[in-house]
């Protein structure tokens, strides 16, 4: 089905985004600018959380919206427009992080200056937000993505699975590991906060590959 035949029953915001995207599909620059201004803040925020690399985020936001311009005609309405756009941002962000892994050591060291790696004296040194930031630094990018999309963007687990192109059980597994890790790092969440081991076993059976990747 062509994008121009699509209608949205996912609320007024999605309907408005769809109309903009339909205009973008016929290369309407005014519509693209409107869409750009609308998505730029939320993509910046999401990618900042996902990547923890402020110096790379702007580039990835631009890459993402460039793809939206180029591929708008390929939107098939299987999800909300924002889910589709966030899915592109996720793939671009993960790709950028992968490139970083293959970067020569010296360049990577320079970029590491942005990290807040030392968590030994965090309580006295920084506030709760910085502590959260540090906690997020210590979970994987995929886990951060699930946490951000759940708590900040307010996505359902099915929508997160759509964004990240993985099964729902993988989303739940990633959330499980993220919660357990954050609970061990953040005092506000520490007291008995980790999900029980029995839940882990159940997830382990459902998504063994994921467990191997994360450990």
């Amino acid at each position: 089905m062509s994008i121009h035949e699509l209608t949205s029953d996912r609320g007024p915001e999605d309907a408005e985004n769809l109309k903009l995207l339909q205009r973008v599909a016929v290369k309407d620059r005014v519509a693209f600018e409107t869409l750009y201004r609308k998505f730029h803040p939320q993509l910046t925020r999401y990618l900042m959380r996902l990547m923890r690399r402020p110096e790379l985020v702007e580039e990835v936001v631009s890459d993402t919206l460039f793809v939206v311009w180029e591929k708008a005609t390929q939107f098939q309405g299987r999800s909300r427009v924002s889910t589709w756009v966030t899915g592109i941002a996720y793939l671009k962000g993960i790709k950028a992080l992968d490139r970083l892994k293959t970067m020569p050591e010296q360049q990577a060291d320079e970029l590491n200056d942005y990290d807040t790696a030392d968590d030994s004296d965090l309580i006295s040194r920084i506030g709760l937000q910085e502590w959260l930031g540090s906690g997020l630094d210590q979970i994987s990018a995929d886990q951060r993505s699930v946490v951000e999309l759940t708590y900040f963007s307010g996505y359902s687990y099915q929508e997160i699975a759509d964004v990240m192109g993985c099964p729902v059980n993988t989303v739940k597994t990633r959330m499980f590991h993220a919660r357990r890790r954050l609970a061990s790092l953040l005092p506000a969440l520490a007291k008995g906060a980790a999900p029980s081991d029995s839940v882990e076993v159940e997830h382990g059976e459902k998504s063994l590959g994921e467990q191997e990747n994360l450990e």
Partner: peptide
């Protein structure tokens, strides 16, 4: 905590 966290203010004009 996550919702109150980091106000991200990218330069949309430049971008």
């Amino acid at each position: 905590m996550i919702r109150e966290g980091e106000v991200v203010d990218g330069d949309v004009e430049f971008s």
